[in-house]
Amino acid sequence: MKILVCISHVPDTTAKIIFTPDNKEFVSQGVTFIINPYDEIALARAIELTDGGKGTVTAINIGDISTEPTIRKALAIGATDAIRVNAAPRDGYFVAAQIAQIAKQNNYDIILCGRESSDHNGASVPSMIAEMLGVPAISSAKKLDVEGTNANLEREIEGGKEMVSTSFPFVAGASEGMAEPKIPNMRGIMSARTKPLTVVEPVDAPELSKIVSYDKPVSRSSVKMIAQEDAGKLWDMIREEKKII
């Protein structure tokens, strides 16, 4: 079984998000970067599925050289080898086009991504890769089990869940529940240094969209504190002042 796991290099979940004064760029100075939390789930499940010599896990990232520590961490957690496509990840389409290109050359059985990245939240890359390859995608998959060359998955839908099955090859976006993220051990960290990390140049992809600026949510004016003995007045207060209930 050959599994490709797509890794995004994202700001730590506790990082403060700050932009340049013209609001055009994210300020990455002083920010710790991590493996996207959903990608960690995907990676952990891939390692479980191939455990005991049942297959290989290749980690792939689209990024410049600054993302290599993040890729090395994926190797330390247990990926067999890794590929870095040497380019800034312009938009979801660009990223998907790079991954689809690598996938066409290598015949992976399963391509696992996180459900979405915590920086752009588009949740579009898994389905875009699948569309480019002409294979099924299961976005927001909470369970993934493999039997031979078939897979059973559980995916989230509004107000419920759905059990689906498909055969290799396919793409899935991992969500909470698929696996517990793994922490690298000392042996993993040592061996990650010598595991193969191949750098390839990107293929062309059309520019279909671009971020022109960022904005921060409006902060709330100020909190209105209600004494505990007045808690019963809350709903009337909200109706009068906010007219939403």
């Binding site: 915590s118 059309p206 520019e207 969209s209 960022y214 904005d215 921060k216």
Partner: peptide, 17 residues
């Protein structure tokens, strides 16, 4: 205008196609 950075910001995206 779309959500970005998991609710911590918004991104203005120009679609050029």
């Amino acid at each position: 205008k779309k959500g970005a950075y998991s609710g911590k910001a918004f991104a203005m995206v120009q679609i050029t196609s």
